[in-house]
Amino acid sequence: MKLVISIAGDNLQSPFDARFGRAAAFCLVDSDTGAWTAHANPALEAAGGAGVQAAQFVAGLGARAVVSGAYGPKAYASLSAAGIAMHLAPGNAPRTAADVLALFNAGELSQAQAATQDGRH
């Protein structure tokens, strides 16, 4: 399955970024093969609507699931509409995208059932 992880860097060993809309980049990983590509987040500099823009971008990458630390209401609505599953990984410990992928594969990440933060921060 194609999975997107929000990261602060440009590869699978980069630190996990717990923010979704304002993450520096997204790592697109095939959870079956481990093949990955990194994509700069076009919403990073957005005046507003970063969550919406990031969600559209992630949907455009063909992802079926995302892992991030928090989802604002607009990101949540957008990703839900696109049928993309939202998984939560805690941002309080240093982790790489590869660590997060391992947690995901082990089935240890819960899914967000609603927006987990207010939209502007």
Partner: peptide, 18 residues
């Protein structure tokens, strides 16, 4: 330019506050 309207799958969403 404000990302106030988004098309995701078979849904078009409007975000009034944007």
């Amino acid at each position: 330019q404000y990302h106030a309207i988004a098309v995701l799958g078979q849904t078009t969403l409007v975000f009034p506050e944007l």
